[in-house]
Amino acid sequence: MMPLYRQVILIVGKDVRIEARGRQTIGLVVVLGILIMVVLGMGLGAGKPISGFSATAILWVAYIFGGVLCFEKTMAVERHDDALAGLLVAPIDRGAIFIAKLITNLVLIAGLALVVTPVAILLFRFDISGHALGFSIIIALGMTGFAAVGTLFAAAVSSTRLQGGLLALLVFPLSLPIIIVSTQMMRSLFEGAGSMNVLGLGTLAAFDVIFLIMSWLVFELVLEP
């Protein structure tokens, strides 16, 4: 059997190649993200400068809705023509499938964030220039945990009738701590002294560790052709 990292690279390569050729998911989620921000921006009163606190909330709404679509699509790829059955009979560690799907999902939401965040900065004129690093760390930590939960449950519900709605229902309440922590940390970052909160970073890291390990352990149980 080939080493784990080779297996992961192969599956990620396959998924990213499919996405690069079709560009179905990324186009969809980016437009959805921009739409969400336009709707919220109009709702909050167009033209008014928006505080870092609200801007984070708006960004997270765009990220989580787009993210759920990404998770669903990365698993849906395997549903076509029973590709998952082929993947399962291949001499590949199930853990490698999880890591590969997680990385693909992270690539997709990173792509989403790379487009949506500048649009938010442009539309809402909120200033992250002083805290770009802190902002990126918080978002990256939050997204890792979010993607871990999302990857696991996308695999769990992918064979059920109501995939999309069900996935959002499962992932949103579990991800609430990420939203709470990152909005609170952004508030202290933008409105406070600009220092990073250790408790907040620790909580985000704890969430990531707990759900990465749990998802990795449980993932092979939920994979069924």
Binding site: V149, L152, F153, A156, V157, S159, T160, L170, P173, L174, L176, P177, I178, I180, V181, Q184, M185, N197, L199, G200, G202, T203, A206, F207, I210, F211, M214, V218, L221, V222, E224
Partner: peptide, 26 residues
């Protein structure tokens, strides 16, 4: 499938509780 998805969610929900507790402390 229902039992499987529910049990995975039941475990995740309980593991979420301490993290929620930490997060609201902010």
């Amino acid at each position: 499938r229902r039992a499987l998805v529910s049990s995975v969610y039941g475990i995740a929900a309980f593991l979420d509780v301490p993290v929620v507790y930490l997060s609201v402390k902010l």
